[in-house]
Structures are given as C-alpha cells and as structure tokens.
Design a protein around this nucleic acid. Structure first.
Lengths: 136, 136
DNA sequence: AATAATTGTGCAACTTTGTTGCAACTGATA
DNA sequence: TATCAGTTGCAACAAAGTTGCACAATTATT
C-alpha cells in the first residue's frame, strides 16, 4: 500500500486509486498484462479510457514497458529503475504456448549480435516462445 | 509474373489477381508490411476484407510470417521454404526509428541463450531497434 | 468445351480496440 | 480550506479486425 504510493511519487505521479490498483495488479500478477486483462480485473471500478491513460502515463514515466508477442501488445513492470529520461530493457521475454503467460526473464541478457555495417542498434527485444517450467 | 504463380501453386493456392498483387507487393517493397500498407497500395482494387483474408491464408500456408514491433503487426515474406506444417524463423528483425521500416536481417542468426531450468524454447524472435544504414 | 464442385471475393453489418474533447472532480500545495 | 494543475468519466468517434452470405472465378470432371 505505502509501497505503491512511494513508487508513484518517485515517478512524479499523483496517487489515485486507479493508479494504485493498476500498479498493484501488475505486482500481484507478475506476468505481462494487456489492456484487456486490466479491464477484466478492474473494469467495474474504472472507465476503459482511464485504464488506457494510466497505461500511457506509466509507459511515459518508465514504470512499465511494452511487451510484444504474436497476439498483441502487453505491458510489464520495469525491473530496474527506469525514468522518463531513459529506459533500459535489453531483456528477454518468454511466452508459454500452453498457459499463454508472458514473463520477463530477469537477470538474463541478450548475447551480442554482430550486425552488418551501418546498423546502429539502440535496443534489443528478444521474445522466446515455448513451454514454461510450470507447464512443461 | 510466372514466378508468382509458381509460388502460389507451390503452396497449394489458387492463383487470383489479389494474391498475385499482394505477393508481388511483398516482393517489390522488401520490408515488412502491415495490413494498412497493403490497403494503401492495393485498396482501390480489392476489398479490405479480401486483403485480411489473403494475409491470413498466406500465413497459414507459410508464405509470410508475422513481424512485431511497438507499433503493431506487420508481415514479411518467409525466406526459406516454410510450409503449412513447419515454420522456421529464428531470425532477426531490424526496425529503423528514422524511416520506420522493418527489415529481416537474413543470414544472421540469434546467438544461443542459456535459459533457466525447465524452459523449453521453440522459437526465437529478436527485434532490434535503432538506425538503419540508409538513415544513419 | 460445357458443366459441376470448390474456393475466393465483395458487400454489409458488426465487434473490438484505441483515441479525443470537454465538463466535472480530486489530490497536493500553500 | 481555497486554489489550481492534473485526473477522471462520459460521449462520440476512428481504426482495426471479424462474420455471414450471395455471387464470381478457378479448378476438376465428363
């Protein structure tokens, strides 16, 4: 509870019940969530539009980041302290084809790739699909 | 022209002008295309729905594959001979933040990643964002 | 070459997903 | 507790994607 407020304040955001609820949903569910997931979880309490805007704000402030897979866009908490100025997520997402959950594999880093001349990479995003330990 | 028919036939598809046009657009543009891109290029000749269905069919038959980035879903030609049964795309996509184009980096392969115990990976998808040689 | 069987297309209607403007409200600050 | 920027809900809209069905085009059959 108090933790949530700290996180919001730390990113220069007012604490509102919607933001607290969205943030705490991310924390409790752990895996990546779509707008639809959040709407399912909180939709009776908040307007669809408010959830969209909350996600947008969290993205901008560096609280969450986008996660991509075949089925669409999801969001997950930024593990390291991202801010409005810099985002750092050269990490790996694993999507389970059984349970459908997508999780960040913390601590793992993407191995270096030797790009052809002229390419100036800025960030890397690796999605691995397969079966997770829970379902395997 | 004849090439296109061969490709379609090879994947057990009837040759229709829409399919030929969609396929030849992929071949000539080279980069990954969204439904909207195709609609822009061919929309006067074909119905929106037909283009959706053509993409779906091409996906199923292994002629194209999905390409993901922050901004949405795109499609690109399968380089190696994919079929309805098996798709093989452990390749790398590079998205340029200047021109917005996404291209497959053929020939490059994703380096091995040491996953924690229990994870059974099936396919890998690496998206690199940055500046491409053309814009750099 | 004509016809039958099959597959593809266009249209209309609809659902889902995401966006924008504005009035009303709320939380932080003094 | 009065103020004011920041936030929310509502309504309306725009974009993206789907479905059913009648008709058209392609392939197979004779």
């Amino acid at each position: 509870m108090e933790q949530l407020r700290e996180t919001l304040k730390g990113h220069h955001l007012r604490t509102t019940t919607c933001r607290e609820d969205v943030l705490s949903t991310f924390i409790s569910k752990k895996n990546a969530l779509s707008h639809g997931d959040l709407e399912g979880a909180l939709g009776e309490n908040y307007d669809r539009v408010t959830i969209y805007r909350t996600l947008k704000t969290f993205l901008e402030k560096g609280i969450i980041h986008k996660v991509l897979d075949d089925e669409g866009l999801r969001y997950a908490l930024c593990s390291h302290n991202c801010s409005e100025e810099k985002h750092q997520h050269d990490h790996i997402h694993f999507k389970c084809s059984e349970c459908g959950e997508t999780n960040c594999l913390e601590n793992l880093h993407i191995p270096a790739v030797q790009l052809p001349k002229g390419y100036q990479p800025e960030n890397f995003n690796l999605l691995i699909q397969g079966v997770c330990p829970k379902c395997g």
